[in-house]
């Protein structure tokens, strides 16, 4: 049976992990390769490396990083952050990334999703969507790291992205991100039921029960978290045992 996936996200700046990571048994927690290796050994199902650097050197730095990760990590990994063109994606895939996450550039130019799917196959194209529920109750797409609102609903963009050839949707609820109060179950379930591609839920995971909820009530195919793993508030092996005991298909 296909397992529900647990994904750890590492934010990268200038080739180093950021977000005050606190590990005793890691020599250099700022080294994405070493930290990724730690998670892989702990049984994480996938890794996402999200580059938040904003320099012209970015593409080369990110490609170099992908290559270093690929050399060491024996599980799938996604690279994202500012990816804007077919050429960006080609370079990252050639350097060993398994999947590429595209966000704002795909929204601004939806034909990019179709071009990427045609050129490289849907399986490696993850469309990342940052969404926020407004006062009117509707979920809207936000761009540029959640700083720029749009009038497009999350549902309509997710459906369009899927029909253009996206292989997965990485759905981050800005209302929930950082709260540790649980994932956005309603919008996650809405999107997961509306599209025929896997949905990765992101934002709000704070307890093991939140993960159970997002897989059951949220109908998510995968759940992503960052700081709760980095700060060891939840350890991956314990989380996976917990979910397995709750009757979910989980890889141990």
């Amino acid at each position: 049976m296909l397992a529900k996936r647990i994904i750890a996200c590492l934010d990268i700046k200038n080739g180093r992990t950021v977000k005050g990571i606190n590990f005793e048994n890691i020599r250099d927690a700022g080294d994405p390769v070493e930290l990724g290796g730690f998670y892989a050994a702990a049984g994480i199902d996938e890794l996402v490396f999200l580059d938040i650097t904003a320099t012209n050197e970015k593409r080369k730095t990110l490609a170099d990083l992908a290559k270093k990760i690929a050399a060491v990590i024996n599980i799938p990994f996604t690279v994202g952050g500012g990816v804007a063109s077919v050429e960006d994606v080609r370079v990252l895939l050639q350097n060993g990334a398994d999947k590429i996450a595209v966000n704002s550039a795909a929204f601004k130019n939806p034909s990019l999703v179709a071009s990427l799917a045609k050129e490289f196959g849907s399986q490696c194209i993850v469309v990342a969507i940052d969404t926020k529920q407004e006062a009117d109750g509707e979920w809207y797409v936000y761009l540029n790291g959640g700083t720029v609102p749009t009038s497009t609903t999350c549902l309509s963009w997710a459906k369009q992205a899927a029909s253009l050839g996206a292989g997965e949707i990485l759905l981050t609820s800005m209302n929930h991100d950082g709260t540790k109060a649980g994932f956005a179950l309603d919008i996650t379930a809405t999107i997961a039921k509306a599209v025929s591609i896997p949905v990765i839920a992101s934002g709000g995971g704070g307890t093991m029960a939140h993960f159970e909820d997002v897989f059951k009530a949220g109908a998510a195919d995968a759940a992503l978290a960052a700081s709760i793993f980095h700060f060891k508030e939840i350890e991956v092996p314990a989380l996976k045992s917990f979910l397995l005991n709750k009757g979910l298909p989980i890889r141990l």
Binding site: M1, L2, A3, R5, Q123, G167, E168, S196, P198, R251
Partner: peptide, 27 residues
């Protein structure tokens, strides 16, 4: 079920040296 299949799934009913030493239902 979503198509394509993406993720970890179990394999079983081994009958090849490729799987020597693996337990059934390996992911």
């Amino acid at each position: 079920d979503k198509i394509p299949q993406v993720g970890w799934n179990t394999i079983s009913n081994y009958s090849s040296d490729l799987f020597k030493g693996l337990t059934q239902n390996a992911y």
